[in-house]
Nucleic acid binder design. Structure first.
Lengths: 217, 217
DNA sequence: TAGATTGTTAATCGATTAACAATC
DNA sequence: TAGATTGTTAATCGATTAACAATC
């Protein structure tokens, strides 16, 4: 059997692809039919060669002289990113953050469908948040297996993060989107994507400090 | 005048420093007095040399044979990251996400103090969320100037993101922590830190797809 | 002392950027 | 055609990793 040679794509490139998509949707909305890399790069504060390289890494080629056809480029990106067929996810933690994630409608255009929420709070169980059911956490494993859900979103207080992650793992979740600040201990087969606000804040603070040093307020 | 030669620190290194801090706080809580880079690296799935290099970049040196003294290392990191003196921030957008950010107590240990919130919704104005006042958005510029706030946190619907960013800029905010998916257009003097969920989701999805290819569920 | 660990210089790796031929 | 833009190879840059001397 010949395994299809999946082109390696770097994480920085992968992170930029959704930005291109967003920019192109806007361009399409303005009735634009073709774009060049120069055009995309200018709109996103990047350099043209980087855009071209990134798109090429995603298997997308343009046409010399004309650039890229906007609708084709959009659908190519969506196909590459797997945004056509939605992946189901379960969210654990029906607090403010959980509600914010449930309320974000953009995910449905980005390949993610958060189908339900789980919590331990009896006042929340049985209710709905942004139209999605809130179930008791002890129903988690059963529903994961029944519905073939592969992604767990962790939006619980940090004190219970590891425990809930282990519940997810026992239920055979394959990937955890971790919104807690806890470094999870998981087996190597489990994918963990950390959303690390402390790191981002550190970058913001340092950049601000440097900016203030250059031109004090 | 001699400008102090501020050591250049890379963004990847800067993003790891809060992780070290978190790990060390846990170690300190367990009564540990000294740690080596090997120890820290093992706990965070990194390599020892990277930890040593990172700490060195932050101006922190250890002692051959013994490693680093835990309490000293913690306070050195806090000092380097500027977590001792809190920076004040104003949050705009008192929705679910805004409430989640206001409710996250960790920020106070990470140099950030979200002192108040602003919104346009008359039902929210005058109230409190997690103990913080909600003001009308048209009070924003006045309060920023009066209180010398430099950081604006943007947690509004994407349709008004650019407009609110411009209100922040006119009020002389210096840095914007952007939780919307909008690419903001700002003058070069303004620091924008994007919290890009679409990019993170793209990385998660691709990693999951690759994992499923290797070992299907 | 012996050995574990650090500090620092060098090598490697990977991403970005530059150069230029190919193309419509 | 001329020229704008792409595709691809090469050069540069920066971060990670390796090697090894210095040190307590």
């Amino acid at each position: 059997m010949v395994r299809k040679n999946v082109a390696r794509i770097s994480v920085p490139t992968l992170r930029r692809l959704p930005m291109y998509h967003g920019y192109l949707k806007k361009a399409a909305g303005q009735g634009r039919a073709f774009v060049s890399c120069t055009h995309i790069a200018a709109g996103l504060h990047l350099v043209p060669i980087q855009v071209r390289k990134d798109l090429h890494s995603a298997g997308i080629d343009g046409k010399p002289r004309v650039g890229y056809e906007v609708p084709v480029l959009i659908s190519s990106l969506e196909k590459f990113l797997g945004w056509n067929n939605l992946s189901k996810a379960y969210l654990v933690g029906a607090g403010d953050l959980g509600a914010a994630l449930l309320g974000y409608r953009g995910f449905n255009d980005q390949g993610l469908d958060i189908v339900a929420t789980f919590d331990n709070d009896p006042r929340k169980i049985g209710g709905k948040i942004h139209g999605k059911n809130v179930y008791a956490l002890d129903k988690f494993a059963d529903l994961v297996k029944r519905n073939g859900v592969l992604i767990g979103i962790l939006a619980v207080p940090r004190g219970v993060a590891q425990d809930v992650a282990e519940i997810m793992i026992r239920a055979r979740i394959r990937a955890i989107w971790n919104f807690t600040s806890v470094r999870l201990l998981v087996p190597p087969s489990i994918i963990v994507q950390d959303e690390n606000l402390a790191s981002s804040l550190a970058v913001l603070s340092k950049r601000l400090a440097q900016s203030l040093q250059r031109s004090p307020s």
